[in-house]
Design a protein around this nucleic acid. Structure first.
Lengths: 338, 338
DNA sequence: CTGAAAGCGCTTACAG
DNA sequence: CTGAAAGCGCTTACAG
């Protein structure tokens, strides 16, 4: 099984031209069936491997998509979600003969507005960006002309296509669920100035409160992380609400641990719901009632939009909301007095 | 910032040849400094992007490495470890101007001995394979002539280069630690016929027992998964040992949960140690004393070996053991009677 | 149905 | 120091 076999080698052995071999191997018209079979058989015999690079250079397309994850989301802490999304993306990509190249965007590069080398070397035909990046970097990305899609975040100032979970609606619905279970004093855990996801979830939570004529108590809005995204110790208020909506499962996990340490039981003393349905949801004791994010669906959208944009660079999709779905577990107590 | 700018375009504007532009842009000899600066400036101005594909096709090298993860290790359950390794690998790869392409090996493809398309299309120069694959698939992989490296597993029959954690030694040392803490009846949790990692860890555990003249009690060897790798309910023996060595953190987590459900406290009633130091180690209550795997180091070895093999296909490294390191937490009780 | 010619964007000898 | 020629492995018109 020697390598470096080219179409020409096959052509020479059969005394035909490489054009004919190309046609045969690609099942294109213009070769007799008989010859086609002969060519394919010989190709197999000679251990021929197609060279996608040669096609790429002709077409000016690499058939690779760069997937960018900012470093701070790629660490041990957040790993599960974005890496899972990446995995789903590569899966869908493969169906279309495309491949994903993962690029972890370092903090320095983000700060210095340094585009990844895969861009400068034309190794990718487009970018899918997972997780919020700085406004400046968004602008930088906007300035380049290859197709790009934002996933799991968006930016008001830019008209880039983005795919996000319907955070607003998800938080709205899970807060409704809390209220259906008799909760009237409900808090929210999350840094409101950190990411748009956290903000939208907060707003959905707030809408539910408004609709039900419940008070928004500022003492029940708890901070969970500093402005760099590093988790901080959650400051539990003296007077407690009967339930909390957390902006993500990991924070809910932190909250439950903290509460437990203070001698408060979940859900007996305080109910907790959250968002993501990642590993933290099942690992927390009790397991969390949470909004599941449809990763497959998001990956599907991302890849399909990318493919469309590759065909027609003008194409634009705007902001797509992917619905989440509540997964009911054991972190909510019904406190309704009948 | 129009695209599709080529070296020729730059050359034409400056009335020089594309050869000169190539030399200038690559900082090679044979261009006057003056001209070089001029070329570089103009390239910048014109928004020139280097086309790595063109170089690739000349050299017959894609500058991509395929990273294969079998589907069963890529699911939610095992995600953390292999996806983290992949991430480390891409990081190191980037330093050398190489990129990683992730390929999830589906169960069907593994069964049908189907090599990934990235192989057939020459989109990668080599393969790094993460996680045990079937013997038949190993043989298939062996039959192809591009460089490959196994990571986190090995196979007796093959002389492929592999990088594995020093499972034997790690389990040996952590069992010693248990014995130092007075434990004499120690069990092991893991399917001994599942992977070589589990086997080696078991053997290291056994060696420690032998050295300390302790009995290996078959009733204390607990199965944790079926032959497909799916976790099963762990069968707790009536008569309990004072400690368990688990083959990985997740299984330790399962064990602790099971024990807790049965009213047994860790570490008061039973100590538990494990392997990996992944997310399950810190999330288990109590946090686990475990052997940390040096992912960075493994990724470093993998990439460096791959690069060497790319230069010289004959090069071979055999099996490399990467030492782990015990992380002490709170799942072990000292039961020594002084 | 078959193939000669040209080209994708670069680099590698080699010549001047 | 500079460049004409050839080639990497394929595909796309176009001609026969």
């Amino acid at each position: 099984m020697k390598n470096n076999v080219t179409m020409r080698d096959i052509a020479d052995k059969l005394s035909v031209s490489s054009v004919t071999v190309s046609k045969a191997l690609n099942d294109k018209d213009g070769v007799s069936d008989e010859l086609k079979v002969k060519i394919k058989t010989l190709a197999e015999e000679m251990g021929y491997r197609y060279n996608a690079l040669a096609k790429s250079i002709k077409e000016g397309l690499s058939y690779n998509i760069g997937v960018i994850i900012p470093e701070r989301f790629a660490g041990m802490d957040h790993q599960s979600f974005y890496l899972n999304v990446y995995q789903s993306i590569t899966r869908v990509l493969e169906e279309y003969d495309y491949y994903g190249i993962l690029h972890i965007l370092s903090k320095e590069d983000e700060k210095n507005l340094q585009l990844p080398r895969i861009y400068h070397e034309k190794k990718v035909d487009g970018f899918i960006i997972l997780g919020q990046i700085s406004k400046e970097y968004i602008e930088k990305v906007q300035s380049i002309s290859i197709p790009k899609i934002f996933l799991d975040f968006y930016d008001e100032n830019s008209d880039i296509d983005s795919i996000v979970t319907d955070n607003f609606n998800g938080a709205y619905e899970i807060t409704n669920f809390l209220i259906q279970n008799g909760h009237k004093e409900i808090g929210y855990v999350g840094n409101l100035y950190s990411t748009s996801s956290i903000q939208d979830r907060y707003l959905g939570f707030y809408k539910s409160l408004l609709e039900h004529n419940l008070e928004l108590n500022q003492n029940y809005i708890l901070n969970d992380r500093d402005d760099n995204g590093t988790y901080i110790d959650i400051d539990i208020p003296k007077k407690m609400p009967t339930a909390f909506v957390c902006n993500c499962d990991q924070v809910a996990h932190n909250l439950v641990q903290k509460l437990t340490k203070l001698g408060l039981n979940v859900p007996e003393d305080c109910s907790v719901v959250s968002f993501d349905n990642d590993i933290y949801a099942t690992i927390t004791s009790p397991p969390l009632t949470t909004v599941e994010i449809d990763i497959e669906e998001m990956a599907n959208y991302a890849v399909n939009f990318m493919l469309e944009k590759l065909k027609d660079h003008q194409k634009s999709f705007g902001r797509i909301l992917v619905k989440g779905k509540i997964v009911y577990r054991h972190s909510v107590k019904n406190i309704k007095t009948r």
